[in-house]
């Protein structure tokens, strides 16, 4: 498989940030009360993700290791500010619906996670595709949740699905569905990604390494 297509496939299906990696849960639960909100949130995150992966990958040899996090934050925050102003200018209703969650993209763990685990180690073009794949995976996840909540909540009138508990319920069922798919794929001999919990204890090759709080002892002694 082509390297770039592989990155897209990895982001959208194999390591889907919403259903497999369980990253970016805050916007996932908070803004998906309708499909259009989920789509808007997903796309704006995608734009930031692609741009930040591009910039971080381009600067990866300049940014000193000791201050890489502040450097990433500065890059991401600048991009988010641009996106926020653009949305206020051209999609004011969506901007007000998403509210504080647009500026909060700065601390979205998908973005920092991809910066830390992929963009800072890989060339520019694959990083762009990695960001695109992850962003689209996030967008699909959010839009799906939003769609289900909108159909059940607003159209069928089961109000609980528009409220916070509904987000948890719908997310749980979609993740369960994803796990069924994973099981079926494994039985067919085409396993998807490992579940997000640490199994191997090998932190060096783990895509979760940036966000992981329970790193194995070997890693600690190295540092």
């Amino acid at each position: 498989m082509n390297k770039y297509v592989e990155r897209l496939y990895n982001g959208i299906i194999k390591e889907n940030p919403t259903f497999v990696l369980m990253l970016g849960m805050c916007p996932t639960l908070a803004v998906t009360s309708s499909a259009i909100n989920g789509l808007g949130m997903g796309l704006s995150t995608t734009v930031v993700l692609v741009m930040s992966n591009l910039l971080i990958s381009a600067f990866r040899k300049i940014i000193p290791d000791g201050v890489r996090m502040p450097a990433y934050i500065v890059i991401v925050a600048s991009l988010v500010t641009v996106v926020q102003f653009l949305m206020q200018a051209y999609t004011p209703s969506l901007s007000s619906a998403l509210g504080v969650y647009i500026p909060l993209i700065v601390v979205n763990c998908i973005i920092l996670g991809r910066a830390e685990s992929y963009a800072s180690k890989n060339p520019v073009v694959p990083s762009i595709f990695d960001g695109l794949g992850m962003g689209l995976g996030f967008t699909i996840g959010l839009t799906l949740i939003g769609l289900v909540r909108q159909i059940l909540g607003s159209m069928l009138g089961i109000t609980v699905f528009v409220m916070a508990p509904g987000a948890f319920l719908v997310l749980a069922f979609l993740v369960a569905g994803m796990n069924v798919v994973r099981d079926k794929m494994e039985k067919k001999g085409k396993p998807l990604a490992e579940p997000s919990g640490c199994i191997t204890g090998d932190c060096a090759s783990c895509s979760q390494s940036a966000m992981c709080t329970g790193k194995s002892e070997t890693k600690k002694t190295e540092e």
Binding site: G157, I158, T159, M163
Partner: peptide
């Protein structure tokens, strides 16, 4: 409670 929240 599910019904109460859904169909107030």
């Amino acid at each position: 409670c599910f019904l109460l929240v859904s169909f107030a």
